[in-house]
Design a protein around this nucleic acid. Structure first.
Lengths: 230, 230
DNA sequence: CGTGGGGTTGATACAGTTCAAGATACGTGG
DNA sequence: CCACGTATCTTGAACTGTATCAACCCCACG
């Protein structure tokens, strides 16, 4: 593992405050692995054996039931995922697969739980992380239950633009079908909703999205600090 | 506060393991309050001042946006709520109001965060609680995104029956409109969905629901341990 | 008794899905 | 480098599920 990658991981809020010996202990059994696109890393229902950290590439968290499938989140570097299952020593509720070629750091769940009991700073960081994630899922639940499809799309565009610097133009980082699933709609529906927005306030060319009338888009989206991550 | 109520609170997983002096510290500034029906206890967007514990009655967690409103959870005694906002010292993402006359214990957020830093057992319990709640919201998100309205209703009936002893008959604990909102549908739709199930596998009389063909209901619901709390 | 809120039922409208066909982009091998 | 094949995306049409609007019922409560 390259030193600079390790430094990035070390700098995560989850690990930042912990003592060096504890950090070493955590990473003794850890290993960094490279995966090609569309590889399933974990499957829902399996026992949580590793805490995962996306170091490079993108990972999709998804869940399936009765022939249907839905995207729950898209994880960008550098971020951990499925911490709750690891801490609780429980089965995963979500599956994960790579959206792009990716590098993932895998830390044995056993070690995470062990260090958690020894390092108060780490325990404190785990709490913060869990609380933050909890609130994020609540936001997403509100997003799904209180908004229509086109409203979710409009807000997603605003948020993605903000994340990529607020330049008014950005590029979709994955398949549109994945975005559709994340937004809780079919690919066909995403297409149509994009077409609708394109008459008014955006231009959509392939994976490029450009905001041309931000006020109108905001009017349609009605962003809300209690739903959208600021 | 009656001793038996205090004992119930003390016995919650969140408080069970903590040292007595810490528990006393936590409850020094706490107070128990009685509320009539339909009283708003907290509003989304407000700063988290208290950790709440429902001691008696039922409390609805809900959220509003753009003229719409949705029920997120119904809290039965004895359970804490909005722990994440308190720990993070953040604003509430959900509002809360009583569904029935209720007794609620309110613990100053300041004290919770203080004791959290001093008592390792309590910190550990907070983590467990947060992780559990996190997983519950993920389950609910999957429930909403992967199931149709009637499937959610069928599963809700199965779960409520199980919670009330699996006798095959139970009574709805609140307005049907609230249940409809919890299930992510309009009251009219709940009515119709209940009517549909009533041709087949249940009897619905007022607030009483009786399961008459459990196998058929299960077939319709396809319960899933990775969505429904066991 | 009225009166009103919750609940049901009906008619209609809309959002979203499904199925099917066509268009576009993309990677691969000749 | 081009041609081909495949996957993704778009568009169209029909259909389903759900929401909305409105009327009505019923029971609880004043």
């Amino acid at each position: 593992m390259r030193t600079q990658d390790l430094d990035l991981v070390r700098a995560l809020p989850l690990f930042k405050g912990m003592a060096d010996p504890r950090f070493d202990e955590l990473f003794r059994g850890a290993f960094l692995q490279r995966f090609p696109t569309r590889v399933v890393l974990i499957s829902e229902g399996e026992r949580a054996d590793f805490l995962h950290v996306v170091v490079e590439g993108a990972v999709e968290l998804f869940a399936a039931h009765g022939g249907r499938e839905t995207t729950i989140d898209i994880i960008q570097p550098v971020t951990t995922f499925i911490l709750a299952a690891v801490i609780q020593d429980e089965v995963y509720l979500k599956s994960a697969r790579t959206l792009t070629p990716a590098q993932v750091l895998m830390i044995p769940a056993e070690a995470v739980r062990g260090v958690f009991g020894q390092d108060a700073m780490f325990a404190r960081a785990v709490v913060s992380e869990l609380a933050q994630r909890y609130r994020d899922v609540v936001r997403e639940l509100k997003n799904q239950k209180l908004r229509t499809g086109i409203e979710r799309l409009a807000n997603w565009i605003l948020q993605n633009d903000a994340l990529s610097g607020g330049k008014g133009t950005f590029s979709i980082s994955s398949d549109k079908r994945t975005i559709a699933s994340l937004l809780g709609m079919t690919p066909e529906n995403l297409s149509r909703n994009l077409a609708t927005l394109a008459t008014d306030c955006i231009v959509s060319e392939g994976r490029e999205i450009r905001i041309v009338d931000r006020d109108k888009l905001i009017g349609l989206a009605s962003p809300d600090p209690l739903i959208d991550r600021s």
